[in-house]
Amino acid sequence: MKNFRKEIFGLLVIVFLSVNATCQEKTSSATDSSSKVEKKDKKKKKKKKYKLPKIDLSHWSVTTPELNKKGGAMNIEPPAILDYATDERLIPYMYNDSVNGALVFYSFPSNATTANTKYTRSELREQMVPGDNNTNWTFADGAYMKGKLAMEDVSKSSDGKFHKVIIMQIHGRLTNEQRDLIGQKDNNAPPILKIYWQDGKVRVKTKKLKNVSATDEELLHEDAWDDDDGFTFEQEVGFGKFILEVKISEGKMVVVLNKNEYAVYEDVSMRRWGIFENYFKAGNYFQSRDEGSFAKVKYYELEVKH
Rank of each mutant, 00 (worst) to 15 (best):
M1I: 12
K6A: 11
V13M: 08
F16C: 11
L17K: 04
V19Q: 04
A21D: 12
T22C: 09
C23F: 13
K26H: 14
S33D: 14
S33K: 11
K39D: 11
K42W: 12
K45Y: 11
S58W: 09
H59W: 03
V62W: 06
P65D: 04
P65R: 01
E66N: 08
K70R: 13
G72L: 07
A73P: 08
M74Y: 07
M74D: 12
N75A: 10
E77L: 12
E77D: 06
E77K: 14
R89K: 08
I91N: 10
M94F: 14
Y95Q: 06
D97P: 04
A102E: 15
L103M: 15
S107Y: 00
S107I: 01
P109Q: 04
P109W: 00
T114M: 09
T117W: 10
Y119N: 05
T120R: 01
R121A: 03
Q127M: 10
M128P: 06
V129C: 03
P130M: 04
N133Q: 13
T138S: 15
G147L: 11
K156D: 03
S158W: 02
K161Q: 07
K161L: 05
K164T: 06
I166Q: 02
H171W: 05
R173F: 02
L174T: 01
L174I: 01
N176S: 14
Q178E: 14
K185W: 13
K185N: 15
D186F: 03
D186G: 07
N187S: 14
N187G: 05
I192D: 10
V204A: 10
V204M: 09
T206V: 13
K208L: 08
L209C: 09
V212P: 02
V212N: 07
S213E: 14
A214Q: 04
E217R: 07
E217D: 11
L219W: 00
A224K: 02
G230W: 03
E234T: 06
Q235K: 14
Q235E: 14
G238A: 08
G240H: 05
I248L: 13
I248C: 14
V255Q: 07
N260V: 07
Y262M: 09
V264P: 05
D267K: 02
V268K: 10
V268C: 04
V268W: 03
S269N: 06
W273E: 07
E277Y: 12
A282I: 00
N284W: 02
N284P: 05
Y285R: 00
F286G: 00
F286I: 00
F286A: 01
Q287H: 00
D290L: 02
D290N: 07
F294R: 02
A295R: 01
K296E: 03
K298T: 04
Y300I: 10
H306K: 13
